[in-house]
Amino acid sequence: MLRGISLTITRGEFVAIMGASGSGKSTLLYVLGGLEPPDTGSVRIRGVDLYSLDDTVRSAFRRDHIGFVFQSFNLLPTLTAAENVALPLRLRNDRPLPLGGPRLTGRDIQDRVSALMEQLNLRGLQGHGPDEISGGEQQRVAVARALAAAPALLLADEPTGNLDWTSGHEVMSLLSRLSRRQQQTTVLVTHDARVAAYADRVMLMRDGTIVDEVPLKRRGADDEPADPAPLVLRLNKLNL
């Protein structure tokens, strides 16, 4: 259960949410993503009150403005990597657009998917099924899918949870670059301080409330994490 949370995230900001199991960090992410309506309060993205929309319109809003990356089982097993990336765009074409926007041609979709896969270093994997690529590649395909509709907000729930450190680092570097170079607003849930260190600031949660906020100072290149030491100290202090 979430209580008394007030949070503003500016465009291009990379925010991490940390907390113990059951602290409500994933729930907060789902509330932000329009998947779980709050009992009270509202969530506004680009000025739109997400929960004032009915299910169909909210789904379309989510499709066009919010991208999700999950910890595991991220890809539809019956689709290739390219088809997984194209999924939000195909869903958008399937029904009239309640929120407006142009209808995409097959070529538009293909170009967008190719560009994303190129950008995320997934060249050559277009025709591969999820079971034919590594865990790190799967997660990058998932990120590409989340970015397919050029969303205003990218939400990632433990995106490195099932990956080894090298693959996890690749994914986090990617999210970090996207945030810094393309102004991609990103909210990340993790329990790992080394992962959270890629963010601009870290919200610390306990029992459904944000108990602290730690700004992080980046060092080096765009895809390098900040020094996690201050964060670790704060976590230790709060006994999280």
Partner: peptide
């Protein structure tokens, strides 16, 4: 996943 990716219930 489909719903999260924006598919409506319909």
């Amino acid at each position: 996943l489909l719903r999260a990716a924006g598919a409506s219930s319909r």
